[in-house]
Amino acid sequence: MKRLTSLGIFFLWVSLAGAAQLFLISGSGGPGVDGPALGRACVPDLMTLVLVVAVGRLDRRDVVTLALIAAAARAACTAAPPFAVLSGCLVAALIADTIRRFADLDRAWLRAGAAGSGALAIGTWLLLVDLVRGSEARVTGRLSFGQASDADFVLAALTAAVTALVAPLVWPALHRLPGLRRLERKAF
């Protein structure tokens, strides 16, 4: 029961990170004819950051569960298909877990790498799904929205870079998020 509560609290933290990210995004200039949404892309991917930090801190057997929870929270903040969000979050979490497998995420560059590569994986994957679905819809005439272009990969890369830069700064704070102690790995 306590474990479930901790997972619920993790969901709350990811949702709060998403809300903060949406707030920052809505205050930035949107995509436009005069140029891509560079302002929006400069907002760090806070949801991925919370997920990656949690993967670095909590029991490794919970990686999939954490990714599923992060995907559920993220799906509420984007028009991207839920399955695309799910696979993106899983890949981000598994990348962080792979890095952690070889080295504890206790150095700034490792943290930046884990967070940046996670954000890049999610961003490029969602963009790829948008491109594939959009081109299919244009052929079949099905109802579809959004018009991603190859140039938008720059946005995904920029978000990943900003996330990587921010990660070492906010990592200590996110590492101490309350309510997750029950999910931490046991010390031997």
């Binding site: 057997r61 999939v64 990714a67 399955f83 695309a84 799910l86 696979s87 899983l90 799904v129 679905r133």
Partner: peptide, 30 residues
């Protein structure tokens, strides 16, 4: 640890399945 291995394998499997479903959406799954 075996359990961790299993979790990782499960994670990649789910990710691959979800990736397929996001590119080829199937109504009931959606």
């Amino acid at each position: 640890h075996m359990a961790t291995m299993r979790t990782r394998r499960l994670g990649w499997t789910i990710a691959a399945g979800a990736a397929l479903l996001s590119l080829r959406p199937i109504g009931p799954f959606e």
